[in-house]
Design a protein around this nucleic acid. Structure first.
Lengths: 158, 158
DNA sequence: ACTTTATTGTTCAATGTTGAACATTTTTGG
DNA sequence: CCAAAAATGTTCAACATTGAACAATAAAGT
């Protein structure tokens, strides 16, 4: 009756990935709580970090980096702009695009939030040796490539 | 000016975790697309898998396993019941709890969905050696424990 | 030059998720 | 036995996310 079940949970890669997914979900939950002090949520942090590193990026480019739709950015960014964290300036060459910049306050919040995230990661990964972290990152990069291939496969066949 | 940035991205554990989070997000996206054939989404799959393994579980227990609130279950499970995937029976001993069971169709859908997920994982993790998968899972278990500790810390201090 | 196609951002309706307040039932402590 | 506390599930309002349809602009093809 449960032949499928036995087969399923014997797959070592399956079990491993379930652990990865669970850890990610938990990390997200804890990070959400810790960011509450700054009155921002993980999606805002992702945006701040990307603007911190890639100043002047467009909404489209940002959406692609964050793996979300453009409409998401159209909803979230104006909120952050009203809150004074970011600024949107029209591109002079291409009147369609809006280029994104951190305000001074946005930069400050970004730094605080990144400090919180880094601290959390350092704390929770402290039991994992550096070499294992590196190996993990290397594996993840390969997995990301494989997943990107899946994405283009499906969009092309459609 | 960007001293913080340089320090941040030099943290090996930080960089590694970002890769993990990204891979998870992508996996979720691709899985969502592949499950569309069965007209279910990842949260439904999580529920089906848990009912497959833990028949007769309560809504509360299920919510805890899935790391979501009880209200989430109260919204989602009646939908799945109407769709004929699951069944909710009142516990005879404790009139508060509803015990959850897969219907025949629910079991069939669960098996198909698990096959899709397993196949996707096998495909995308194929480049990662089994030993590395095991090491990864071991690290993740430690991280999960550390994160659980964070959760109780915060709830107790509050 | 001009029509067609593609890109960027917005809007909107549909859906999903959360936390707080609530009713019911059970357990605990006196 | 009874009142207080806890547990379970529901409801609701607030918010987030998505995809499709749309307007404005730019790029490509002719």
């Amino acid at each position: 009756m449960n032949k499928n079940q036995a087969l399923l949970w014997d797959h070592p890669r399956f079990r491993s990935w379930i652990a990865v997914a669970r850890a990610c979900q938990l990390m997200q939950t804890v990070l959400t709580r810790e960011l509450a002090d700054l009155d921002i949520k993980p999606p805002h942090l992702d945006i701040l970090v990307n603007l911190y590193r890639f100043e002047g990026i467009s909404q489209q480019e940002l959406a692609r980096k964050l793996l979300v739709g453009r409409s998401n950015m159209s909803m979230t960014l104006p909120q952050m702009e009203k809150r004074g964290l970011i600024e949107r300036r029209g591109d002079t060459r291409d009147k369609r695009v809006l280029r994104l910049f951190l305000t001074e306050e946005g930069r400050a919040v970004a730094e605080e939030a990144m400090a919180i995230q880094t601290s959390l990661i350092e704390r929770t990964l402290s039991s994992t040796p550096i070499e294992q972290c590196h190996a993990m990152a290397e594996s993840m990069e390969k997995i990301i490539l494989a997943l990107h291939a899946e994405v283009v496969d499906e969009t092309e066949s459609a």
